[in-house]
């Protein structure tokens, strides 16, 4: 019996096979299936909505260009996140050469928070309204202050739901490194959030 992940992979493979044979409708389906996750991941990594949308577009343009070289037995999920991660790395490098480093790491910057509030299509789950908005901002600020490598691993694992093995493939690093980065990222977040966590959980 195939697992749920296996079923998703099977469905992805069928779409990839069609896309490799110049079926644009199949590629469209791939984009619709993954664009939300890729955008959310890129946006949470670079914290700039317009650029995140451009990088998401670029992710799918690159995927389309090289779809024929994609091995069907590989994971489409992993492949797309790897393209997105490489684009984010290039983007952050370019930003660092043009923008002073302090402004990039200034998580509590009010303008950044305003920009985040203006993001279109933010999920408006009624249950989410119950969560303390201030605490959400604290979590986002703490996340933003994490070193890039730790944040990437944490986003892929806790936000995008990739497995340790998939993250190791995306980041092209050993499984032990992935575990270590997730552990340290969570520990650092907990340290930062500890004053606000009393009475929760």
């Amino acid at each position: 019996m195939l697992s749920a992940a296996g079923n998703v992979m099977h469905a992805d493979s069928a779409l990839v096979l069609r896309a490799q044979a110049n079926d644009r409708a199949a590629f469209n389906e791939i984009v619709l299936r993954y664009k939300g996750r890729i955008f959310n991941y890129i946006y949470r990594t670079i914290r700039h909505a317009a650029d995140a949308e451009d990088l998401t577009q670029e992710t799918f343009v690159r995927a389309y260009q090289s779809i024929r070289s994609f091995q069907v037995r590989a994971s489409l999920n992993t492949w797309l996140f790897r393209i997105a991660t490489n684009l984010c790395i290039d983007y952050v490098r370019k930003q660092k050469t043009h923008v002073p480093a302090e402004s990039l790491s200034c998580a509590a910057d009010e303008s950044e928070q305003d920009a985040q509030r203006d993001i279109p299509d933010a999920a408006l789950d009624p249950q989410r309204l119950l969560i303390d908005k201030e605490l959400t901002h604290r979590v986002e600020a703490a996340l933003e202050q994490l070193p890039e490598k730790l944040r990437t691993a944490l986003l892929l694992y806790d936000v995008e739901g990739l497995s340790y093995e998939e993250i190791a493939a995306v980041l092209e690093c050993p499984l032990g490194t992935v575990k270590s980065r997730i552990f340290h990222a969570r520990a650092a977040l907990r340290d930062r959030l500890a004053p606000y966590l009393n009475g929760m959980g």
């Binding site: 939300g36 955008f39 299509d121 933010a122 999920a123 605490l135 959400t136």
Partner: peptide, 10 residues
Amino acid sequence: LVRDLPRYDT
């Protein structure tokens, strides 16, 4: 809290 952060779409 991290897993419950709001998600964004294009």
